[in-house]
Design a protein around this nucleic acid. Structure first.
Length: 876
RNA sequence: GGGCUCUUAGCUCAGCUGGUUCAGAGCACCUGCCUUACAAGCAGGGGGUCACUGGUUCGAACCCAGUAGGGCCCA
């Protein structure tokens, strides 16, 4: 069979993914095995695969594939969320292209368009995950607006309302005037912008006096209902109890006093606009001020805007400042940098706005979630440093505004039957609502037509906070077999940017609805940044095309590249060179396979070197496996990968294969061949979670396999005893080999010219490894001698001295110099060790183990000095 | 402004309980090699005041305090 010299990922990836799905390896049903469950952080339906998803999902796939190999019943539930704001924005834009305005169609018509859109594009990202190799149970794919999922959300809303935890409140919210909806604090991005600070003078009623205030938003003066001064500020003491007149609208407003005012900022005198600033609202409530809202929902001015009615806020800012200037109210302007909130989705400047919203009261709900993470360690965060961030947020938790002024999403199940503030009921169905409404109103004549459902939809997170429960239908049927089996899930892998948005809220809902944690471990990945440390984002255009990367480097190469340098919770500075490294590694493995596959096998006696090499590698493998397991247990995924990388590249390819390699065109003995095939297969198992496609391809090339024998469901190796002597012996031999190679290199002696080696075995090192040393360095003989050999180049390993006889002149002077340098170094080392040992307090305080070590160092140094001195003497 | 966190080789990062895993890894770099699996490779090599200043300790990259500079979260 002709095997190409390069691994060709695009030729095999699709084929193996199809094979895996055809045989249903990724599908899970409850059985007697221990479950291992991950729920995917549902990507947004509008999303396309980006670097963050790739990192995130690669890690999940590594975890789930390893669990599968370990014989657990591995279940990775995929799905998407409906992303109300983002999706609605996309659908609105698409309709606009078709000349349809959202205002002109009904809710039902709009939702139909939204569903069409979802059906068309919603599955794109999931298909892309398959390209990456993700072994999700696709039969379980969920969408946050599936019937059951929506019913769960509504049921939870009604339940929380009935528990008194959901309430309706008139609050200042972050209003996105473009999307015409409320945003949560977390969806607001604060940006620094250069603006102006306007100094405006207000007349004092009944006098010629004026007072000057500073504001960044002159257009809001039309909503002013007070001027506020600090009671401790003597500059304004004469204004106490007086009224001011708002320019342009000539409203008469009181001058109030409050210590809230910062006397240092601006003029130390503040205009108060309770409808348009959160702090002003607080002042307004405290001092019983009138609240005047001057904006429409699109942030154009309403009738309070007088002659500016209908104009946009930014336009009005320009024109009103001009008018103020012309009328002499504008004292001056200053450059001013202020932080303004913008919408994460639409980029519009957020307008603080008062409106009726639904809130979930969080304080009580949060308690078990605080305890689980911070006190009981019931849920563990990796890395641990995020616990502090978590604590800070949870202990200062604010009520969750769960309503959104959107159509796409679950409509709030509140039904109004009258005009009063309290004339509404909350129920899962219209019929139930009608019953309740009749009872509550005492009007038994109410009909469905009298009920009007709240127009708002629920925040998307109010769906996804139930995700680990609702994907197993655990809200609607809390005792069903699946939820009982799969819940609590094991690991959650997500970005730290949604620790509060999502993770904390899932923990809260988990305890509220299952009385149990939703997952045991939370692995928080870093953010993927570019080389200039900028966050990768669509708007910056600095994110590479994920699918193109897979095309260029193979899915395995990209997976390895992403994982190589992404310690948990640390941002990953993405560099395509890492994918190249991954691709190179794939090729290395491929060629390791080609070499072995090319050997002809014969019934020959096993060479000693091969036997020893196999025994050594077996120990090395198990020692490394132990480290790998330790790394996995601590979610040090990149360390686990690096350990495997070095094992396969250095120990297996560079050492073992060279040790057992038969001479050119010679066959290999069967014992060694069988052993190395077994070893190779064990390596592939360790590699499989990281590089699923390549490893399955090679695995299937090694032998004919039945579907039951596929690598994807093979058995992960268990740690076997390690023979440390073999590992030490090898390490020593490797140093000898390096010494000989250095001599070859220095003297330009080609590998094909055999060398002789003489050993002064002062360290009494076992001769077992001589066969390996001879093979890897092409020695014709190894002689054991009692004294230094003349006319040879030398090197030393520990207290052993090695001689390579040279025909031709040896530069005695250079040899002496080399020896003297080594001697000087080791003497200095001995001095430092002895200094330590002669320190009484060290000997008294340090643990015995440490002292023994120092004594060993001392003995080794003395032995080596002895060797060096003897050699020097013989040379001189 | 408040809280958290970080600073180790050219780059990206490990370094877990203070002591042989103590100054490491990978990449990059330099020098040889088109050696028969792999030049996407092989063999060898150089490179760090562990941000700075002090303290604790027999012993500090690690603990404590301060300084400087990044980052994150909150306001």
């Amino acid at each position: 069979m002709e095997i190409p010299s390069k691994y060709e990922p695009h030729r095999v990836e699709g084929q193996w993914y199809e094979y895996w799905t055809k045989h249903n390896y990724f599908h899970s049903t409850p059985d007697d095995r221990e479950p291992y469950t991950i729920v995917i952080p549902p990507p947004n339906v509008t999303g396309v695969l980006h670097m963050g998803h790739m990192l995130n999902n690669t890690i999940q796939d590594v975890l789930i594939r390893r669990a599968r190999l370990m014989g657990k019943n591995a279940c990775w539930v995929p799905g998407t969320d409906h992303a109300s704001i983002a999706t609605e924005a996309k659908v609105v834009a698409k309709l606009k292209e078709q000349g349809i305005d959202k205002k002109d169609i009904t809710r039902e018509e709009f939702l139909k368009h939204a569903w069409d859109w979802t059906h068309e594009y919603g599955g794109v990202i999931l298909e892309q995950l398959k390209k990456l190799g993700c072994s999700c149970d696709w039969e379980r794919t969920k969408f946050t607006m599936d019937d059951n999922m929506s019913a769960s959300v509504i049921k939870v809303f009604v339940d929380l309302y009935n528990k008194g935890l959901i309430y309706r409140g008139y609050r200042m919210v972050n209003w996105d005037p473009e999307a015409k909806t409320t945003l949560s604090d977390e969806e607001v991005v604060y940006e620094e912008r250069q603006g102006l600070l306007y100094y405006l003078s207000y007349k004092i009623e009944g006098s010629e006096e004026t007072v000057t205030i500073a504001t960044t938003r002159p257009e809001t003066i039309l909503g002013d209902t007070a001027i506020c001064i600090n009671p401790n500020d003597e500059r304004y003491a004469h204004l106490r109890g007086k009224n001011a007149i708002v320019p342009i609208c000539n409203r008469i407003i009181p001058i109030i006093e409050d210590e809230y005012v910062d006397v240092e900022f601006g003029t130390g005198c503040l205009k108060v606009t309770p409808a348009h600033d959160i702090n002003d609202k607080a002042l307004g409530e405290k001092h019983n001020l009138e609240t005047i809202d001057i904006f429409n929902e699109d942030a154009s001015l309403n009738s309070f805007g007088l002659h500016y009615e209908g104009k946009d806020r930014f336009e009005v800012r320009k024109s009103i400042s001009k008018e103020l200037e012309e009328k002499g109210f504008l004292v001056k302007t200053e450059q001013h940098i202020n932080k303004i909130g913008t919408s994460e989705r639409t980029k519009a400047v957020i307008e603080p706005r008062l409106s009726d919203q639904w809130f979930l009261s969080m304080e009580e709900l949060a308690k078990p979630a605080i305890k689980a993470v911070l006190e009981d360690d019931d849920i563990k965060l990796f890395p641990k440093k995020f616990e502090n961030t978590y604590r800070h947020w949870m202990e200062n938790i604010r009520d969750w505004n769960i309503s959104r002024q959107l159509w796409w999403g679950q409509q709030i199940p509140a039904y109004y039957y009258g005009d009063g503030q309290d004339d509404f009921v909350v129920a899962e169905t219209e019929e139930a609502a009608l019953d309740l409404a009749r009872k509550k109103s005492g009007n038994s004549n109410l009909t469905l037509k009298d009920l009007k459902q709240d127009a708002d939809a629920l925040d998307t997170w109010f769906s996804s906070w139930l995700w680990p429960i609702s994907v197993f239908n655990g809200i609607l049927e809390p005792d069903n077999k699946e939820i009982e089996y799969y819940y609590p899930t094991n690991d959650l892998v997500t970005g730290p940017d949604i620790l509060f948005f999502w993770v904390a809220r899932m923990i809260i809902s988990g305890y509220e609805y299952r009385n149990e944690r939703p997952f045991e471990n939370v692995y928080l990945t870093g953010l993927v940044r570019d080389k200039q440390r900028r966050k990768m984002s669509k708007s910056l255009g600095n994110s590479p095309d994920a699918l193109q990367l897979i095309e260029d480097y193979g899915a395995d190469g990209v997976r390895v590249g992403l994982l190589l340098s992404s310690a948990a919770g640390n941002d990953l500075m993405f560099d395509e060179a890492l994918c190249q490294q991954g691709k190179n590694f794939a090729n290395k493995i491929w060629n390791g396979f080609r070499l072995v596959k090319g050997w002809e096998v014969a019934d020959l006696p096993q060479p000693e070197a091969s036997k020893l090499g196999i025994e050594w590698y077996t120990s090395k493998f198990n020692k490394t496996l132990e480290e790998i397991e330790d790394h996995f247990s601590k979610y040090r995924i990149s360390d686990a990968l690096m350990a495997i990388y070095k094992l396969v590249w250095d120990d297996y390819s560079s050492w073992l294969l060279e040790i057992i390699k038969p001479a050119y065109q010679q066959p290999i003995d069967r014992i060694t061949f069988d052993a190395v095939i077994h070893i190779f297969e064990e390596n592939l198992k360790l590699l499989h979670p990281f590089m699923p496609f390549l490893t399955e391809e090679v695995w299937q090339h090694i032998a004919e396999r039945t579907p039951e024998e596929a690598l994807v469901i093979a058995k992960w190796p268990s740690v076997q005893p390690v023979n440390e002597d073999l590992i030490e012996g090898f390490n020593f031999a490797a140093e000898v080999i390096a010494g000989i190679r250095t001599i070859r290199k220095e003297k330009n002696i080609p590998m094909k010219d055999a060398l002789q080696l003489a050993v002064l075995n002062d360290g009494d090192i076992s001769r077992d490894w001589d066969v390996v040393i001879a093979k890897l360095t092409n020695l014709s003989a190894i002689d054991y001698v009692d004294s230094a050999v003349d006319g040879a180049l030398t090197f030393r390993v520990k207290s052993n001295e090695y001689f390579v006889p040279m025909v031709g002149a040896i530069d005695i002077g250079a040899e002496i110099k080399k020896l003297e340098e080594e001697l000087e170094y080791i003497k200095g080392f001995l001095v430092s060790v002895r200094k330590k040992l002669s320190n009484e307090r060290f000997v008294a305080n340090a643990p015995a183990q440490v002292i023994d070590l120092e004594r060993q160092k001392e003995a080794d140094a003395i032995a080596k000095i002895d060797t060096l001195e003897k050699s020097l003497a013989s040379l001189k």
